[in-house]
Design a protein around this nucleic acid. Structure first.
Length: 253
DNA sequence: AAACGTACCAACCGCTGTGAT
DNA sequence: AATCACAGCGGTTGGTACGTT
């Protein structure tokens, strides 16, 4: 047993970098495997969550734009608490983020509504853009803009046809890399996000070491796919590998 | 300056769906 | 068909930053 005590709570920078490193190596699938070989004392689940909600290069950070806010309201009125589904329509936003937003959003509105209810003089529709309609999980509200004004909404297939959202961990590096690049361009034009230190580190890694490691390693996977499974069997070699990597990487800088 | 309340965010938990065996 | 492992989702909680008193 002695199930190597599982770490919980906030992630450290080092853990983040380590996770990014292994996701770059193996893609964002097989989280249990990644958790194992990375030497992170985290569950696969935890790794995935961290990746999806924080480390993914496609993430847009910072406040929701008014458009996004309206879109959330609209889509929630349509689908209810299907956060992941809603998130697919907001590139760069995670289900968690939207969920959190909605929580505070609705709470605020509920309070506002309570106030307007308790003050009888206030009419029914004295509405600031974000008030008066009190959407709750049970009684969502649609502001008066139709889906047809929203290409994003319109284009959405009712059946979830495996749309690939940025946080839909899809797997392989080939798909991942260009996507990250594209997202970077988008971010560049937005400049809305505020990067923290970890992102600087990750940027450095991506630009320098990770890239070289990718180009260095990918041929190995191509030529010796079996290596992966060998490694899976003997995952102990990885901590050594990363330790060496981290010891000599830019991280120390 | 301290205490308190609120908003926001990150992370965990439990459950469900899905694919592999 | 049954079972298992893993991925994904939604709900919830805990921590912290920030504003107000």
């Amino acid at each position: 047993m002695v199930q190597d005590e599982i770490r919980k709570g906030p992630w450290t920078e080092h853990e983040d970098v380590q996770l990014v490193f292994y996701v770059n190596l193996f893609g964002d699938r097989r989280w249990d495997f990644i958790a194992k070989v990375s030497g992170l004392k985290r569950t696969g689940k935890s790794c995935r969550l961290r990746w999806v909600n924080y480390l993914h290069p496609g993430l847009k950070r910072g406040k929701m734009t008014p458009y996004e806010e309206r879109l959330v309201v609209e889509l929630h009125s349509k689908w209810g608490n299907r956060w992941s589904r809603i998130a697919r329509k907001l590139p760069g936003r995670t289900d968690n983020e939207i969920k959190n937003y909605w929580r505070t959003h609705t709470r605020k509105k509920a309070q506002e509504k309570k106030q307007t209810m308790s003050s009888p003089s206030s009419g029914s529709n004295c509405s600031s853009p974000t008030s008066s309609n009190a959407p709750t999980d049970s009684m969502p509200v649609v502001e008066s803009f139709s889906p047809s004004n929203n290409p994003a909404v319109d284009s959405m297939p009712v059946k979830e046809n495996k749309e690939r959202s940025f946080y839909d961990t899809g797997g392989d590096i080939e798909m991942w890399a260009p996507m990250a690049k594209k997202d970077k361009e988008v971010e560049e034009s937005d400049k809305v996000y505020n990067m923290d230190d970890i992102w600087k580190d990750i940027d450095l890694l991506e630009n320098d070491t990770i890239k070289s490691i990718q180009t260095m390693t990918s041929p190995i996977w191509n030529f010796c796919p079996d290596l992966l499974w060998m490694m899976e069997e003997d995952s102990r070699m990885f901590p050594t590998m990363t330790d060496q990597f981290f010891a000599s990487s830019t991280l120390t800088g």
